[in-house]
């Protein structure tokens, strides 16, 4: 079963979020909550096409390309994702369906078209490679705000700088991470991950932010593995919000009969 841990959530980092007025005197927890909403819950639903370019430590390049549909069950709460791959060739038309749960493990299904097989996937470690990229499942699905202690270390003209330390150190590979959150739109623009020696070994950057239907959206982001030298760049295009996706799209029916009218690229 190739690409079990295939993806999806990217987008909602990217299909993100409404404009919130920057305020002063906010505490770190509030900023993180707003950032979570800004980066994960833009609009009621959305559609996007994603191209991931994975460069390994030897400079070899791989591609992952997919269309993603997202629907919020509740603002700041549970969400559904439908991800269908077009590249690489060996996973074409493979579908990943995720019911993201805030208070429980996500439900995940994988559809393998060559076997006509709907496979249910056991919950996995969220800090392992996502479809072979340097992104982790959690980077794109969003880390629950209450899993870390947050500390506002600085406020610059443009950013809140927040240090985050995990409540359960056994479940993660980092000692802490520092976030740069845009004061205007609350989108996270940079994350540095520190190891036990206090060295930065991993970095995520938002390379491009565009406003789409009024929602500031990260349309290009990059993760770098500073130890190995590998990186993954994630680009999104053809993004649409609030398209009225029906609930029944996120079901076994859509795995065996993909909802073409929602997947096709919007005409200009």
């Amino acid at each position: 079963m190739k690409f079990k841990y295939i993806c999806f959530y990217f987008i909602f980092t990217i299909l993100s979020m409404g404009y919130v007025h920057a305020q002063t005197d906010l505490d770190a927890d509030t900023i993180i909550q707003r950032s979570n909403l800004a980066s994960m819950y833009a609009g009621q639903d959305g559609r996007a096409e994603t191209l991931m370019t994975i460069i390994d430590n030897k400079g070899r390049k791989q591609i992952r390309q997919f269309v993603i549909l997202r629907r919020d069950r509740e603002e700041g709460g549970d969400q559904d994702f439908f991800v269908i791959f077009s590249r690489p060739a060996d996973v074409r038309n493979t579908i990943f369906l995720v019911s993201k749960k805030v208070d429980a493990e996500d439900d995940r299904w994988l559809y393998l078209p060559n076997l006509d097989l709907v496979k249910r996937i056991a919950a996995g470690d969220k800090r392992t490679s996502f479809v072979g990229s340097q992104f982790f499942y959690e980077d794109v699905s969003g880390r629950r705000p209450d899993e870390d202690h947050h500390h506002l270390v600085d406020t610059t003209e443009t950013h809140f700088i927040i240090d985050n330390t995990p409540k359960n150190t056994a479940s993660v590979e980092f000692q802490s991470y520092r976030l740069w959150i845009n004061k205007q739109n609350y989108l996270p623009q940079r994350a540095d991950y520190f190891d036990t020696q206090g060295e930065v070994y991993r970095q995520i950057e938002a390379l491009n932010i565009e406003e789409i239907q009024g929602y500031p959206t990260i349309t290009k982001m990059k993760v770098s593995d500073l130890r190995s030298g590998g990186s993954t760049t994630n680009e999104m295009r053809f993004i649409q919000y609030d398209i009225g996706l029906p609930e029944e799209i996120f079901s076994e029916r859509s795995l065996r009969h993909p909802p073409r009218q929602w997947l096709k690229r919007p005409k200009k």
Partner: peptide, 25 residues
């Protein structure tokens, strides 16, 4: 295979022609 780069535009609309949209393994 190592020399095989993604020469075409990865964002191009698929099925540019009937002939080119076959996938070969």
């Amino acid at each position: 295979v190592g020399n095989d780069e993604w020469a075409e535009d990865p964002w191009a609309e698929e099925e540019a022609s009937w002939w080119s949209s076959w996938r070969t393994t």
